[in-house]
């Protein structure tokens, strides 16, 4: 846990802001929910969410000064969340059902650790790492053909929204602290990212509908090369 408790040296609490933090965790959970549709996977995700809720409660208690109780509760939350991986390994029927969701269950937990925050100095790292785990699980799901196209694309967009909201929570917290009213900006920012995500998914679906199987090989090579070059060029 970050050692600054209720307030920092300068008397201002600079934790990640609440609304964006909530959006980040919910979007990460949504991404996993879109991938895992069997009952075992849903059960594991439920355990995961319960663990995150307990972690959030423990974090709140810790930051209000109840160090011992808060710390123990938070630790229990993390434990419960980690147990969800065990749930999916034991309960899922096929290997692909396990593989496509097990790493992803760590995603929301890591994002939550970043915005509670468990260790303020590494908040951004936690959030990025959490998003990376969700992306990994989306790729695995695509590889084992576990999910349909729309849920897969949706899950990916949701992951970007989760990362974006988590980072926004952190930088708003750093600049304005937690006493300031920041929710309109948080809602506006994440709303815009989500809408853009929908546009991106629609574009991908449109691209899919173009049906590139009839295209000559040279054309495909050129398209892919152009994509790589443009991505590097857009590197921000």
């Amino acid at each position: 846990m970050s050692g600054d408790g209720i307030s920092g040296v300068d008397g201002i609490t600079r934790h990640p802001t609440r609304v964006s933090s909530l959006v980040a965790v919910c979007a990460a959970v949504l991404a996993i929910a879109l991938l895992g549709t069997t009952s075992a996977q849903r059960l594991a995700l439920g355990v995961d969410v319960a663990g995150i809720a307990v972690l959030a409660l423990g974090g709140a208690a810790w930051h209000r000064g109840h160090r011992v109780v808060g710390g123990l509760v938070a630790l229990a939350g993390v434990g419960l969340s980690l147990a969800s991986v065990g749930v999916v390994v034991v309960r899922a029927e096929t290997v692909s059902q396990r593989v496509e969701i097990a790493p992803g269950l760590l995603g929301p937990l890591l994002v939550a650790c970043g915005v509670v925050p468990v260790w303020k100095r590494f908040s951004r790292t936690f959030v990025s790492l959490g998003a990376a785990f969700v992306v990994l699980t989306i790729c695995l799901s695509g590889l084992v053909r576990g999910a349909e196209m729309l849920p897969l694309l949706g899950a990916f967009a949701a992951t970007v929204v989760a990362w974006d909201a988590g980072e926004q929570a952190i930088n708003l917290g750093e600049q304005l602290g937690n006493e300031a009213r920041t929710w309109p900006v948080e809602v506006g920012h994440s709303g815009a990212t989500a809408v853009y995500g929908c546009v991106a998914v629609a574009a991908a679906v449109g691209f899919h509908d173009l049906d590139v199987t009839g295209v000559p090989l040279v054309g495909l090579f050129a398209l892919f090369g152009a994509a790589v070059l443009l991505l590097v060029g857009l590197y921000n």
Binding site: G225, A226, A227, L229, L230, V232
Partner: peptide, 15 residues
């Protein structure tokens, strides 16, 4: 990175 973007656009046009 601007030359990279120009090159990318050129390749895209070729495609």
């Amino acid at each position: 990175r601007t030359p990279v973007v120009v090159l990318g656009v050129a390749v895209f046009a070729l495609a």
